[in-house]
Amino acid sequence: MAALVLPAGLLVLLLLGAPMALMARYSFNTYDPLYLMQEAFTWANYTKAVTDEFYRDILFTTLWVSLLSTFITTLLAFGPAYWLARMESSWKSKLTILTLFPLLVGGVVRSAGYIALLGNEGAINAALRGLGLISHPIAMLYTPFAVVVGIVGVVLPYMVLTLAAVIEGIPRQAEEAAANLGARPSTVFFRVLLPLSLPGVLAGATLVFILCMNAYATPVLLGGPKFHMMAPAVYDQFTRVSNWPFGAALAFILLVVTILMTSIGSLLIGRRARPA
């Protein structure tokens, strides 16, 4: 039976493990505009990525956009997740499909949809103008605001479904007992529901944060040419400048920062989420 693990294990090793090792090696090489990549062993690419103001700003932008988006997503997801988890009618499976649906439609398609909504001639500006509320369009597309809206919209279904699964496991009696003992709805939420659903918050936020850090379509399509995040920056190093070593170093920094942040998150939340 144990041998059954082999095919998939070898494939992952060959297609992910080995390539990551090769990229790690490349990230210590040097780049020459004329001869491209040169064999070397230097930390220079990593030093450049964190000291060069341009790339440091990209990393910070990526971090704050990801943290803000993860936070907003978590807040927004609680309502629908609770609604979905506590629903008992036959609508529940339909609503689950409806929540899963935008997730499976794909990031590019949904980003295109946000362009249609947020543009100067888009649905929102047209509606506001139609109502006579504004005379000039509000610039929303190609702003950080559009990127955050787009990312939150794209990752929200993940959070709703993850949270709903955990809330479903919390016995309804726990809430009822608190309410019977005189707790107000807000107290029930903050003292009973929220602490008990922290494992779901942690799992959902980790997933969402990884997706935000990795976002490519949303910043490229909704952020405009002056807005930079890490994933497009990595891509540019390979397609526009062919600086492989530096691109490899940027990719590793993205990976390490993502893992570091999610570890810090699980330490902070995980300690409280552990059942007493």
Binding site: L16, P19, L22, N214, Y235, F238, A251, F252, L254, I259
Partner: peptide
């Protein structure tokens, strides 16, 4: 499950170089 944790752009870059 690790391919789900490594950002797609990172895994894609590593595969491209390989």
């Amino acid at each position: 499950l690790s391919p789900l944790i490594v950002p797609g752009i990172v895994a894609g870059t590593a595969l491209y170089l390989t």
